[in-house]
């Protein structure tokens, strides 16, 4: 009977225009994921430099800004390519609107990338004294080596708002209620620590076991709290009808349910146990495997969280 398929108190849309589908797609997922690595390596790198002597991590001084530089540029590239008018990106600098977290974020991220570039150049030429001996840039970088240590605290400080401003963009995207959660800010920070530790694990082959143990500790804590955050959202979803309707795409099975649980298990649960195990006995290969899983899982979790709120009709 029709009343069993169409609830008598509900309404059925019988004529409407075609609605937009997913507006912010995989490029924005990649953008957020790459930024997590770009800022995360600086935050985790600063933690390592605070805890250990530089000799224990011989290449950290230049690999940290290099990794950050690469992923910040991936982030900036996909920010640009996602624009429908990419050449007008310059308007953010010529006609900035300061109530927009997109504007504030673009300015901060640009400054952050510029500073990381300086660190990378100084760090690389310092670590490789025989490279480009006659190059003016290389010599200038070597001559101003002390600038690295002066800039670094400011870069670490700037990495925090650059990590977090995306959560403010999400908060300003007031049509998508799932993103209007304070947990979003903490999620961005945990994602950066997770991605930063995972990326540094991949280049930590020649570091001391103690430094690697600290990386495993950061990875374990970040995966644990990231998982808790997502579980909190998953189970406390009934705070509003919109959030509930959004999370139905995860609760009720389907492609997003699969992607979500793959992200949770591969990205958070498995790396957590490997990282905890690695704190007892150092196993570089297994820890690298955990790092790769964490990065893949983080991408999947972010992808689901970005897309499902866009599935709901807004009007």
């Amino acid at each position: 009977m029709v009343e069993s398929t169409v609830h008598a108190t509900h309404a059925v849309v019988t004529l409407d225009v075609a609605l937009p589908g997913i507006i912010w797609g995989w490029m924005i997922t990649l953008n957020m994921w790459a930024k997590s690595i770009g800022t995360g390596v600086i935050l985790v790198g600063a933690f390592l430099l605070y805890r250990h002597k530089k000799d224990e991590m011989p290449n950290l001084r230049w690999t940290m800004p290099l990794i950050s530089f690469i992923f910040l540029n991936i982030f900036l590239l996909f920010t640009l390519t996602d624009l429908h008018q990419p050449y007008r990106m310059v308007n953010i600098f010529l006609h900035p609107h300061w109530t927009s977290a997109i504007t504030v974020g673009a300015w901060m991220a640009s400054l952050f990338t510029a500073l990381v570039t300086v660190l990378m150049v100084i760090g690389y030429f310092d670590a490789h004294p025989n490279v480009r001996k006659n190059c003016a840039l290389a010599n200038a970088a070597r001559a101003n080596s002390s600038l690295y240590e002066k800039l670094f605290p400011f870069v670490v400080f700037l990495a925090i708002p650059v990590t977090l401003y995306t959560a403010i963009i999400m908060a300003e995207s007031s049509a998508r209620e799932l993103w209007q959660a304070p947990a979003e800010v903490m999620q961005m920070m945990w994602a950066a620590l997770l991605a930063g530790s995972a990326a540094l694990i991949l280049v930590s082959g020649k570091w001391s076991a103690e430094a690697r143990k600290d990386l495993a500790l950061v990875l374990a804590i970040a995966t644990f709290f990231s998982f808790l955050m997502y579980m909190g959202e998953y189970f406390f979803s009934f705070k509003s009808s919109e959030a509930e309707a959004t999370l139905a795409y995860v609760h009720a099975g389907g492609a997003y349910n699969t992607e979500f649980w793959f992200g949770m298990v591969l990205g958070f649960i498995v790396p957590f146990f490997i990282a905890v195990g690695n704190m007892k006995s150092d196993n570089k290969t297994l820890l690298r495997f955990a790092a790769i899983l964490a990065l893949v899982g983080l991408y999947m979790a972010k992808d689901v969280w970005l897309k499902i709120p866009q599935m709901l009709p807004l009007s």
């Binding site: 937009p20 912010w24 624009l83 990106m89 007031s174 049509a175 009709p313």
Partner: peptide
Amino acid sequence: RCIGCAGCMMACPYGAIYMDPETNT
């Protein structure tokens, strides 16, 4: 002036904004 970031489309709770297919704004 629009850069086509679609931030407004994500912010409007009424789904009233579209990306013009002719101007991409």
